[in-house]
Amino acid sequence: MQFEARPSVSILRAGLAPIAAVAATLALCSVLIMWTGTPVLNAYYLLFKGAFGSTFAINETLTRSIPLIFTGLAVAVAFRSKFYNIGGEGQFYAGALAATYFGTGLVHLPPLLMVPFLMICGAVAGGALLIVPVLLKTRLKVDEVVTTLLLNFIVILFVSYLIEGPWRDPMAMGWPQAASIIDEGVLPPLLAKGRLHMGLFFALAASVLVWAMMKFTVLGYEIKAVGFNAGAAEFSGIRVNRIVIYTALISGGLAGLAGVSEVAGLKGYLTRDLSPGFGYTGIAVAMLAQLHPIGVIPAALFLSAVYVGADAMSRAVNIPTYIADVLVGVSVLAILVSVMLTRYKIRWR
């Protein structure tokens, strides 16, 4: 068996790759569903119904997709320049921490200014968390994968310290959580019913902005050039290290925005279980989107539907909710193969 590089990747194949990956994922995971004793088609029907079957369900799926769009964008930008930021989870919490610090009474601004102010604080905090890993990478060649991963654990422990210690809300009936975001800082709900909030607009706007940046600006071009061939980029006069640092700041900022949107839009206050792994799921989102900023939107919607639908499905039939995480993991592996097949032809001989 040999692989032969295709001269060019057709748009049709690139567009079909994620669809094929999703189909393969559902087919592979049906083995697990058969084990539970639930008929496969029935289970997937329940999953679909749980995610899109009612106004409430659609509402929940859209709400859940907001942080995934942000963390997916964070990964998409970083991986484009081959900066492997696996620290989305930590940057998410850094953003949530900043929003809590500035948004619980320290600063009072009218709502029109307060919300953008908190967004900026969160983005700065998320980016700041990546300063150490990116400088260690550019200055000392320390692998960023391990440093960003380890920082996740450090930040989550720091959050736990703050909400059990100095930031603990005495009004919270003994639950470890921080004080609530003041009313001016809360992202307003979009609909009269349900939890959907303004964060959706910010997430969609971020996708378009990142897309425009990658397509129309010099920085976007240079990010792609560094990722494609850092040596050639350096030779042609691009300052590779500087571009990697900018990429990291943008990526961390986007993940930080996810934290702001969850704390100021959905929950209202900081807890330790604010994120059920949005940072890691962001990797799956970005891969399914093939690192395309607009593609992140449907990818995030799909994975958020998997989570919301799996919750509903496991309530209806006896399938553990962990099936959602299995689907996410398998989809990462499936998209790797299907994207590879858009670039290479298999030759059997």
Partner: peptide, 28 residues
């Protein structure tokens, strides 16, 4: 090794898959 796809992403994918599969099997 055989398909030659990204080692970073494969590894993260295996971690997500192996740990969630372990939890799923445990619960089953």
């Amino acid at each position: 090794v055989y398909l030659g796809v990204s080692q970073h992403v494969t590894g993260i994918g295996i971690t997500l898959f192996a740990s969630s599969l372990s939890y799923f099997v445990y619960r089953m």
